[in-house]
Simulated scan of single mutants.
Amino acid sequence: MGIFGSIKNAIFGNDKTEKQPPATSTAPPTTPATDTFNNSGVKFEPTTTVDVAERLDKIEGSDKLNWRTSIVDLLKLLSIDPSYENRKQLAGELGRTDYEGTAEDNIWLHKRVMQEIADHGGNVPPELLK
């Protein structure tokens, strides 16, 4: 699992239904299956809607971190190593290969993570997506 997968699991929880084998049925499907893709073109299964800000605000120590604007603080809050190497890997997972760790790169990365969380069913406040 990549860094974004760790972020997603920390916010949404582990999806235990993914690990269970699919139910077998002899009846044909009634509607065609549709694929869902995020902004990077990666296929994903939507999860249930989660109020992201409320969930993150409930994590102990959230009041001491600026997770709403800082990718480093967001990763710290989720107990994920915020090192440059991990942020660079995360940027690569989200489609950016020229990440250098500048302030602009980190702002982009935070917004991109918030957008991906929203794309996966998270209810993200609009001010975190701008």
Results as ranks from 00 to 15, higher is better:
residue 76 K to H: 06
residue 116 E to V: 14
residue 115 Q to I: 10
residue 79 S to H: 07
residue 79 S to Q: 05
residue 127 E to D: 12
residue 117 I to W: 00
residue 33 A to G: 08
residue 3 I to W: 07
residue 89 Q to E: 12
residue 91 A to M: 09
residue 4 F to T: 04
residue 63 D to Y: 08
residue 40 S to H: 06
residue 32 P to Y: 06
residue 103 A to T: 13
residue 129 L to G: 04
residue 14 N to I: 14
residue 58 K to Y: 04
residue 129 L to E: 04
residue 111 K to Q: 15
residue 50 V to D: 06
residue 53 A to E: 05
residue 32 P to K: 13
residue 127 E to S: 14
residue 120 H to E: 13
residue 4 F to W: 01
residue 42 V to F: 11
residue 10 A to C: 04
residue 15 D to Y: 01
residue 118 A to W: 00
residue 39 N to T: 12
residue 57 D to I: 03
residue 118 A to N: 00
residue 101 G to M: 07
residue 52 V to S: 02
residue 13 G to Q: 03
residue 124 V to Q: 03
residue 11 I to Q: 02
residue 55 R to N: 04
residue 49 T to K: 08
residue 3 I to A: 05
residue 5 G to F: 07
residue 130 K to S: 14
residue 33 A to Y: 09
residue 54 E to C: 05
residue 19 K to C: 11
residue 120 H to W: 11
residue 76 K to R: 12
residue 124 V to T: 03
residue 14 N to A: 15
residue 44 F to V: 03
residue 62 S to C: 00
residue 99 Y to E: 06
residue 15 D to E: 08
residue 87 R to N: 01
residue 24 T to S: 15
residue 95 G to D: 03
residue 102 T to Q: 04
residue 92 G to K: 05
residue 35 D to P: 10
residue 16 K to S: 02
residue 45 E to M: 10
residue 55 R to T: 10
residue 31 T to I: 14
residue 103 A to L: 12
residue 26 T to P: 11
residue 82 P to H: 02
residue 47 T to S: 15
residue 38 N to I: 11
residue 58 K to G: 15
residue 25 S to W: 04
residue 80 I to A: 06
residue 106 N to Y: 07
residue 62 S to M: 00
residue 110 H to F: 13
residue 36 T to S: 12
residue 54 E to S: 08
residue 122 G to W: 02
residue 1 M to P: 05
residue 58 K to R: 12
residue 71 I to L: 03
residue 125 P to K: 01
residue 103 A to C: 06
residue 52 V to C: 03
residue 114 M to W: 02
residue 52 V to D: 01
residue 101 G to I: 09
residue 10 A to D: 01
residue 64 K to Q: 08
residue 2 G to F: 07
residue 19 K to N: 12
residue 40 S to C: 14
residue 34 T to F: 13
residue 59 I to G: 00
